[in-house]
């Protein structure tokens, strides 16, 4: 048991990421609120960002600014951070887009609840 906890502690990033990913996934699938689904997507994506950035992390490392001296662990790997910047940009635009769609749905139906939506749409035409 302690061994497992120790492992979890040392892999804290990964454990956190896994929990976040599953939480986000669950929200997207299970929640009826359209905006909460968007939030779920965001939670899920932050999990992925975390795990990605964590791969480049070096214990005690410093940002690889070549004019500054390296930390005790040398520099951290900058590539994942750079990639994740791109990832965050993508995530922000997707979020903005989905929120725009949600507001349109609200204009059309007057609700953002999935069940309510289905009810107002009525039976298949």
């Amino acid at each position: 048991m302690t061994e497992l906890l120790g492992k979890l502690y040392h892999n804290g990033f990964y454990a956190t990421a896994a929990i976040l990913f599953l939480t986000g996934f669950y929200i997207v699938l299970a929640d009826n609120h359209l905006i909460k689904k968007v939030i779920g997507i965001n939670v899920m994506e932050s999990a992925v960002f975390l795990i990605f950035v964590a791969t480049g992390y070096v214990e005690g490392g410093r940002a690889p600014i070549l004019t500054a001296p390296p930390g005790p662990g040398g520099y951290i790997n900058p590539v994942p951070s750079a990639l994740i910047l791109t990832g965050i940009v993508v995530s922000v635009s997707v979020t903005a887009f989905s929120l725009a769609l949600v507001s349109r749905i609200y204009q059309h139906y007057g609700t953002v609840d999935v069940d309510e939506l289905a009810r107002r749409r009525g039976p298949e035409p």
């Binding site: 986000g24 997207v28 997507i41 994506e45 997707v94 769609l101 749905i105 059309h108 749409r121």
Partner: peptide
């Protein structure tokens, strides 16, 4: 609009898995 929303959410789920 509704179809687009559903498409976007599922597609993003797929992207999340892909990025993972």
């Amino acid at each position: 609009i509704e179809a687009a929303y559903r498409y976007l959410i599922l597609s993003t789920l797929g992207s999340g898995a892909f990025l993972f």
